[in-house]
């Protein structure tokens, strides 16, 4: 239990998907001009992350790993399909996003209006696929996978809302013209990354 809590803190702050691994930078930079939209995208990412990463874990454990197909037929016990991981993971994510979009539209139109345009974007958000791949590389078990996906989602949410808040303020500051927009956003992300680095001093 303590280990899981540590993992949660670690995945939110110490190994933040944005500041430590640069995952999901595209939408992070594109959708962080206003706090409100950033908030919507952050929520959508948490949502999809929690849904797809455990799903991919199940696919990996019961279909792809060496010997995982043993439950179908004993003769399949030696098959190793891990090289199919990328294709299946991205299909799961694309499918899940489509499904989530339809369900949300049907049952909670208000949430759909808030998240609407961001949902399709999430398919190609690197942080989602990245979380699944990290789950595979670090060999988490199911509980750890679930906690890790929550932490990574919250980490992304935190990062994008923070940057949006700063960028809203930046409109009132004097920045050299060539540096405006993208350039300053990069440098600010770097500074925020340095601030987040200080979390790595925490003993967990």
């Amino acid at each position: 239990m303590e280990g899981l809590l540590n993992l949660l803190i670690k995945s939110i702050f110490v190994e933040n998907v944005i500041f430590a691994f640069f995952l999901g930078m595209c939408s992070y930079l594109a959708v962080s001009k206003k706090v409100k939209t950033a908030f919507g995208l952050g929520l959508a990412v948490i949502f999809v992350m929690i849904l797809t990463t455990p799903l991919n874990y199940l696919i990996l454990t019961y279909m792809l790993k060496k010997g995982a197909l043993g439950w179908v037929h004993p003769s399949l016990a030696t098959v190793d399909l891990t090289f199919l991981g990328f294709i299946l993971f991205i299909s799961t994510i694309a499918g899940a996003v489509q499904l989530v979009e339809m369900v949300v539209e049907k049952f909670t139109p208000t949430l759909y209006n808030a998240l609407g345009i961001f949902l399709p974007l999430i398919t190609v958000n690197c942080s989602i696929l990245g979380t699944s791949l990290f789950m595979q590389e670090r060999e988490y078990d199911f509980a750890e996978t679930a906690v890790f996906s929550v932490g990574a989602g919250i980490g992304f949410f935190l990062a994008i809302v923070l940057l949006a808040a700063i960028r809203e303020r930046l409109r009132y500051s004097k920045i050299p013209e060539p540096l405006q927009g993208l350039g300053i956003a990069m440098i600010i992300t770097g500074l925020m990354g340095m601030a987040f680095l200080s979390f790595s001093g925490i003993q967990l």
Binding site: F19, F22, P178, G183, A185, M186, I187, G190, G193, M194
Partner: peptide, 16 residues
Amino acid sequence: PPAALFLIGIYIWWQR
């Protein structure tokens, strides 16, 4: 990691 962001930011500055 932050150094990469600074360098890209500076590159963009120079390019623009």
